[in-house]
Simulated scan of single mutants.
Amino acid sequence: MKRLTRAAAAAVLACALALSAGTAATATAPTAPRTDAGPSAGAVSAPLALPAPSGPHPVGSTVLPLVDRSRTDPWVPTADGRRLMVTLHYPAARPGGPRAPYATREETRRLAEGLGAGTALPADVLAATRTHSGRDVRPAPGRRPLVLLSPGFSVSRWTLTHLAEDLASRGYVVASVDHAYESYGITLPGGETLGCAACAALDEEGVPGSVVTLTRAADMRFVLDRLTGPAPAWRHARVIDARRIGMAGHSIGGASAATTMVADRRVDAGVNMDGAFWEDLPAEGLRGRPFLMLGTHDETHLPGGLDTTWDRIWPGLDGWRRWVTIAGSGHSTFSDFPLVERHFGLPHPELAPERAVLLTRAYVAAFFDRHLRGAPDGPLAGPTQDRPEAHFHTP
Rank of each mutant, 00 (worst) to 15 (best):
R34F: 00
R34S: 11
T35V: 14
D36N: 14
G38C: 02
G38A: 11
P39R: 05
A41R: 01
A41N: 01
G42S: 01
G42P: 02
G42Y: 07
A43D: 15
V44I: 09
V44E: 12
S45C: 13
S45K: 14
A46F: 14
A46N: 14
A46C: 08
P47N: 09
L48Q: 04
L48E: 01
L50T: 05
A52T: 13
A52P: 02
P53C: 06
P53K: 00
P53T: 05
S54G: 15
S54P: 05
S54I: 10
S54Q: 15
S54F: 09
G55Y: 04
G55T: 08
P56Y: 10
P56E: 06
H57L: 11
H57F: 04
P58C: 09
P58K: 02
P58S: 06
V63W: 04
L64I: 03
L64T: 11
L64W: 06
L64P: 07
L66H: 04
V67E: 14
D68I: 01
R69F: 09
R69S: 14
S70P: 01
R71M: 02
R71I: 02
R71P: 09
T72L: 12
P74T: 11
P74I: 00
W75V: 06
P77L: 00
T78W: 11
D80F: 09
G81Y: 05
R82G: 12
R83E: 13
R83M: 11
L84K: 10
L84N: 07
M85P: 01
M85K: 04
V86C: 10
V86S: 05
T87W: 11
T87V: 14
T87Y: 11
T87L: 04
H89Y: 13
H89N: 15
P91Y: 02
P91K: 08
A92K: 06
A93V: 12
A93R: 05
G97H: 11
A100C: 12
A100I: 04
P101L: 06
Y102I: 09
Y102K: 00
Y102V: 07
Y102P: 04
R105Y: 11
E106K: 10
E107L: 06
E107T: 08
T108A: 08
R109Y: 08
R110Y: 09
R110V: 08
L111A: 04
A112I: 03
L115F: 15
G116Q: 13
G116F: 14
A117P: 04
A117D: 06
G118W: 11
G118C: 13
P122M: 03
A123C: 10
D124L: 07
V125K: 00
V125G: 00
L126F: 07
L126D: 08
A127P: 05
A128Y: 00
T129W: 03
R130I: 12
T131H: 03
T131M: 00
